[in-house]
Design a protein around this nucleic acid. Structure first.
Lengths: 202, 202
DNA sequence: GTCTATAACCTGATAGAC
DNA sequence: GTCTATCAGGTTATAGAC
């Protein structure tokens, strides 16, 4: 009883470590992260990290799986929803990505970098090839049979995600402030569907 | 004489190290790279690396500066060319990026990751804020005064560059083969200007 | 469960022979 | 210029006290 009360208010140590690990891993990447940094960020001792998660590697595996699920899993189902029109899918994907990335701006650079460092290891977990037979591809082929559907999938994801990859550059260079970046990102939720729609007209 | 003859045929040791360093750094990033890996890839000894370039840090600095120049320097001047129309600028940027990235597909992920790890250090070298007063922005403001010009700059760069960032994912997942990726990338040199043109119509 | 102290290992860099 | 051998420092992981 006393214990469950504590858990409801404070975070468990395991939870504190996981949250610190997320933060440090996504910001610096696996190789540049030291377990000491995570321990310090979690406000605990280094030994405790190995007590809960046997190794840096194991801890990373857990974080990475969650991040992969978040990055791919949030929008992947939208592509294969048979109850939506093409326009609805496009809006749903753009909004889904932008809303998510406004909360986790450095998710894409982290996930894509770590995949690149170890493609076979992580991609085997996620059945991405499904998009080839998705409702989305089927709809694209009927409306624009002259172009490979991958073009438009790339376009939607590019326009939604890449601004967040450029964010550190744009802000450090003084081209946008964090405030205007956020405004622009929000505007794009409505703009991207309009733009894609214009692209789809032959 | 004998020496200059050798240099014309074989590569100098310094050159071999630099090429190996480029390859390993861009593939694994600074933190995950071991100087031993570079030495091995160059076919030389670890001590020799420190003989030519005092440290891993110094060697990385050299490589990074070249990559920054390549990634930003190739297209940045095109944005501020007063002799070209807006449509010409768009075509030049898309073609410039895609042609470059077909040769160096992992340049973007490398450059953007390392900038993120150390924004102030690298961005201070490159005067990106110039784009705010560029001919490109000026032209955009006259044609679409209702939208921030950064939207369209993001769009052109996103559509050109992001496919190369997704390349490892798309290929490992079996969505495209390396061959079809290249075909698609080439097609985009003509498609992107058409798409941007369609976007710009109010 | 949590800590301090330390072991075991790895990596960048140098010394010194050739 | 190039190598082998080694040092110095830092990092992960564990042993053992509390």
């Amino acid at each position: 009883m006393a214990k469950s009360k504590r858990e409801a208010v404070d975070k468990t140590t395991e939870q504190k470590i996981k949250e610190a690990a997320q933060q440090v891993f996504t910001q610096k990447g696996y190789a540049a992260t030291r377990t000491r940094d995570i321990a310090e960020a979690a406000g605990i001792n280094l030994a405790l990290l190995n007590y809960y998660f046997r190794s840096k590697e194991k801890l990373f595996e857990i974080i990475m799986m969650e991040k992969l699920a978040r990055f791919f899993g949030t929008v992947a189902p939208l592509f294969d929803d048979p109850s939506t029109t093409l326009d609805q899918k496009i809006s749903a994907v753009a909004e889904g990505y932008i809303d998510m990335l406004l909360q986790s701006p450095d998710l894409p650079l982290f996930v894509l970098s770590e995949i690149r460092a170890n493609p076979e290891r992580f991609l085997s977990k996620i059945p991405l090839a499904k998009v080839l037979e998705s409702d989305f591809f089927r709809q694209l082929k009927t409306i624009r049979p002259d172009l490979h559907p991958v073009h438009f999938m790339m376009n939607i994801v590019s326009l939604s995600v890449f601004p967040f990859i450029m964010k550190p550059v744009l802000e450090s260079a003084g081209i946008v402030t964090p405030k205007t970046f956020e405004t622009i990102a929000r505007e794009r939720k409505k703009l991207i569907p309009q733009w894609i729609s214009a692209m789809l007209k032959p």
